[in-house]
Design a binder for these strands. Sequence first.
RNA 1: GCCCCGGUAGCUCAGCUGGAUAGAGCAACGGACUUCUAAUCCGUAGGUCACAGGUUCGAAUCCUGUCCGGGGCACCA
Length: 575
Amino acid sequence: MRNFAPFDERLSVWTADTMKTLFGLGESDIKLGVSPTNNEKFGDYQCNAAMELTKVLKKAPRQIAQEFIDAAKRPDFVEKIDIAGPGFINFTLSNTALAEHIQSLESDPYLGVEQVGQGQTVIIDYSSPNVAKPMHIGHIRSTVIGNAIDRLYRFLGYKVIADNHLGDWGTQFGLMMVGFRSFVDEEALAKAPVEELERVYVASYNQSKEDPSWREKAKSELVKLQQGDPENRALWERFIKLSIEEFNTIYDRLDVKFDLYRGESFYNDRLPKIIQSLENKGLATESDGALIVDLEEEGMPVCIVRKSDGGYNYATTDLATVEARIEEFSPERIVYVTDERQQLHFKQFFTIAKKLGMKANLVHVWFGLMRLPEATFSTREGNVIKLAALLDEAEVRSLEMVKSSSPDMPEEQQKDLARAIGIGAIKYTDLSQNPQSLVTFTWEKALNMEGNSGPYLQYAYARISSVSDKYATKYPDTHLDQYPITIEHELERRIAIKISRFPVAIRAAAENYRPNILADYLYDLAQIYSSFYQNVPFLKADEGIRESRIRLCRSTAAVLRQGLNLLGIETPERI
RNA sequence: GCCCCGGUAGCUCAGCUGGAUAGAGCAACGGACUUCUAAUCCGUAGGUCACAGGUUCGAAUCCUGUCCGGGGCACCA
């Protein structure tokens, strides 16, 4: 085990080993490890095994706990062990061990987090908007949650391939072609390309409803595109290029980067082969002219892999995509981040992929739909809020605050700061909720800058940074490492404990694909720190205590900076 | 009809792989800026964890049923 192993791990291994030996236990479901206490008065960690062991050992829980304590040789990082309530075994860490642990983390760029992903590749498929449709607030979840998962896995040592699987193929392009040639306004296209493309699409769609010949024309243009007609191909490529350019301005603002932009069309050539293997394995059957895979045994409805008109479905494209990804990257895992409506689709196509013998763990991370207080929003209802507008508003609002709180700051810097804060606020709102819960969008919540919010965390960080710099200016010749960290004050202790639990939060957030676990953790840490900051002097403390506290501050800052970075939230040095 | 989610303080949400008195933020009320940044801190008040059963030493958490809300269920993705 590494030096920096979190106390939870070390304690759990120890309690489990000790109990197994002492009581002659074999493997069982009973959890012999420890978990954090939910109240400080019970110590730092608790083990609940004694209560569960009564069945096996036929002894009273408190007696079991007592026997454990009597027999166990307590590790040196544990200050005291006691029994409480019906048989809880509570552990209190020694302040010295805590202090040493925090000191040892100062030189660890990973802050105690183990590189569990070494040598493994993970593909994360997220954001994935449709070409020629503007991104609206519904897209922020896939983008921001996907990006946080991306960053978390990289931090754990995985080789991550972030793939933006654009919706760049489909029947809508027939309408786009004919619509574009008749309706496009080149000026508008230059100004807001995707908006104009969408307008063209809607106009063309409306025309098709009344005009059968228009519909026919669209169909034949689509066929021409699919057959590789150079002119249509060029136009289609232009749609994609314009869309990606515009998406990229949003990704830049959100500080989101992809390794690949491979749309659905990238896998077109492989589709017939997928159908072929489905047929070869006897998985596909004809039904009403379409080719389907029967999934009744798995308790799911049939999955269409080829339409009666010969066209392919997205299930087929997704299968081809997996196949191609395995050939090229041999990923240990492929993670898809989409909204909840696609659960059935992913279940179906994961099942088929398995039947085809595709070897990669396929994971669908889904999140609840974003809705407006009045109703679910939809393009049809016309109650769509554009993502760009949301980002603009965030920056405007935070700029106001920056101007009033830092009037002397140069304007460029104010703007830059406002951007970091505004975007941080939006990201944090999304990331701090359980992804699977249904989200009701309100401006107030999305742009919250007080209390449990992105700016609260950034503010805590900026305060540390400021204190830390003031210390350096005031005591330029002092070497902090000549003064040990000492833990005396209750708040110092709480901070140290919290910092030591960073790896647990990271692992839980990554393994469960739930960035909100990390967001919660960081908020707790910032809260404890803010209390510390407000109630305990640093610079005015006596020599020794002063340095110890500054070191604690800097450790807190390191965790906040790294943690927020993993959520994709910037940490300005001054706010 | 079947399947998947959600229902926790006035509002927005954590907690859900069972543990000790259910937590935050906002809103309300009362305090703290000559002091390391008040986007802050300290305190008060606020709960039949939708409802009913069950499992358990112990249930917001697991199981069953009911009600309410969202989503999905063959040629859109």
